[in-house]
Write a protein that binds this DNA or RNA. Sequence first.
DNA 1: CGTTAATCGAGACGGTACGTCCTGTCTTCGG
DNA 2: CCGAAGACAGGACGTACCGTCTCGATTAACG
Lengths: 216, 216, 216, 216
Amino acid sequence: MNVDVIADATADQDRKAPGRPRSARADEAIIAATLDLLASGTPVEALSIEAVAARAGVGKATIYRRWANKESLIVDAVASIKGDVLPVPGISVREDLVTLLRPVGRMSQNKFGRIMPCLLNELRRNPQLAESYRELTEPRREALRRVIRRGIATGEIRSDLDVEVAVTMLVAPLIVQNVLAPNPALEGVDLPAELVDTLLSGPAATAGAGPVAAAG
Amino acid sequence: MNVDVIADATADQDRKAPGRPRSARADEAIIAATLDLLASGTPVEALSIEAVAARAGVGKATIYRRWANKESLIVDAVASIKGDVLPVPGISVREDLVTLLRPVGRMSQNKFGRIMPCLLNELRRNPQLAESYRELTEPRREALRRVIRRGIATGEIRSDLDVEVAVTMLVAPLIVQNVLAPNPALEGVDLPAELVDTLLSGPAATAGAGPVAAAG
Amino acid sequence: MNVDVIADATADQDRKAPGRPRSARADEAIIAATLDLLASGTPVEALSIEAVAARAGVGKATIYRRWANKESLIVDAVASIKGDVLPVPGISVREDLVTLLRPVGRMSQNKFGRIMPCLLNELRRNPQLAESYRELTEPRREALRRVIRRGIATGEIRSDLDVEVAVTMLVAPLIVQNVLAPNPALEGVDLPAELVDTLLSGPAATAGAGPVAAAG
Amino acid sequence: MNVDVIADATADQDRKAPGRPRSARADEAIIAATLDLLASGTPVEALSIEAVAARAGVGKATIYRRWANKESLIVDAVASIKGDVLPVPGISVREDLVTLLRPVGRMSQNKFGRIMPCLLNELRRNPQLAESYRELTEPRREALRRVIRRGIATGEIRSDLDVEVAVTMLVAPLIVQNVLAPNPALEGVDLPAELVDTLLSGPAATAGAGPVAAAG
DNA sequence: CGTTAATCGAGACGGTACGTCCTGTCTTCGG
DNA sequence: CCGAAGACAGGACGTACCGTCTCGATTAACG
């Protein structure tokens, strides 16, 4: 969130600031330039204010007047893309989970996906950015949680599952595979489907008979 | 890989290079200094060759003579720590898996763990570093695979499990939780144990007959 | 000459440059540091921009923004010391000449004298520095010329003398003796007086009538 | 003088050193390379041992084994060119002096002349180089002295002249004009002739009457 | 005639300075 | 007051030499 906007909001909603008001166009141009640069591959550590200012057609001071440092600019830029709406789930629990996970497995193909990987290294160091990150991913995690709970209610999923752990086991492999250190052994695999099957003890659902029964 | 080693390999394995040979002590000092700086918190992007040279007591040219750039120095430095041996697993499959996963959950407490997080952001961009990373983690993954296969053989684990997917579902959540974006909802949880339980015991509970019972 | 001054002179004398103007304090600090280092014995070839920047409390870029290289910085630094005023001459032509030459014979004892010798080697290569040098020495040469012309007018000096050649014959031996290659055979000699006597009195002695006698 | 030769001379003239003797070809190649580089414009301060070694086809250690530093190499290199013989003087004293001075006025056209200017800056700092310089110039000065004394004996030159001062007054202007800081006011002048005329009280010789007499 | 030892070219060593670039801050101008 | 422009101090970059050192290979005199 823009520092001035915060200040204005907490101090005086109605009174006009003296002098020339800040240009909303500049705000937008700066945020857009930041996202553009991140999406076009610039790693966060190499994202220079100078480059952002140049691409936004704005003076460096104009950026520093609004954000205290590079990190908070990035936090705001990231927070601004929260709009990306979520797909609506389907009918079968298994199908719904796979549907929800699939875009995570194709992260490198949308804007959100191209920006995220650049930020991951900063998450450890920057709690605010981590917060923004969580705010962005939370709706997706919540959707997963809802489907899992629905599955438990309908008996499609066993009831002793820790929902949070389950969600993490579904999402984390995709993040690691797509964003950090792709494992060549998993390259051709339809990972979202495999993950769901593995978690939900596929055999019971796919063959009608669990592996133990088959082995017995 | 060291530039000279490359040269030797492509040219002539046996003939000695003319002139004074390169100092092995310098090699070691440079690698050690690099790892020290990484372990002491310096982020990869802020690791300067100048600082490495100073800490190693070495001229900058001595570094540039061996490595073309910062990245390949880091690749070699990382590759050099592969020595960290693995703990030997125990008896019960469930216990063995938890034992193997536990150190991953405590990565921030050993040298390897303090260095790794600094590198993750580079993995996407630098295939060589990614290769080094995989070489380092592969023995740990292989140990997990062996235990899982043993469990399948003894009937403690259902046989339809894709071993690679299972390994990833165990490891990835720990990496994400400890290194990237800790999820506050999982903060107090004994994640290694929860992961193993979620993966292994689920089917047993839903199918009415656990693998242990079947094996008994 | 400062690069900016050049730019202004060739482009537009009146229009202000955009952006923050250059700091006059930095200019002065850089020139002062340069002269300090030269005067304290640093030979021109060992004068490093890095040292100048450090002593001036200035970034290297601030120096390179103003001067393209070390040489032109030195040219400007030298040009800036032209202020050293000249002593006023006395009454007798012979005495006046000796008075004017004496400081040249004691160059190693004043600031100007300690800096000059460091520059001589550069004069051949650097026409701009040679120009600065000439601008600094010209007032002194002009003073000598005036005295010689006065002597010719009053009859104290023979009238066929080429003034420029005479000035050079007085000054060059002192430069060579004090700055370049002292001749041991002239070590104890009061060179300024000897030079004037040799130049002026010679003809008088051979012709039987000294200039003073002629003027008396 | 070569460091080893010194050692041999002071210790034991006859006993041969054990081991492989030093290569005379290397000595010559190094000296020649040094003079080449100096003559081809490289200023003394920019003459790198590395360049000398490269041009001589010799290792750097081969140079440092013989000379303690760059300066003493240059001293020896300069000393090695003393061979340049002097022209023989003519009949008239005035003509002889002009003949002797003329080559000094054309220094930039022979090898000696192209090397000398590079050295002048070092003379102040390096007594050994100054000594070499004096040894090289002394024969020329001595020739001038002899002619001047001959002129005094024959009555062509007045007898009260300090010979050393006179020599300096003839030579120093040429050095300054040709090597250090050429005075534009003297550019078209036949300086050697003018100097001799000015010193020898030209009028007496050219017009038969001294200036004082003419003015009286 | 083989041993011996100082030489040779080559090149790595720890340093220092180079001139460039970019950082985040600051200071001025014109609108 | 705002925007743009650009100077500010600082510091890392990768290169070039410095003068020293260390290597394997020569090479000449001594034994």
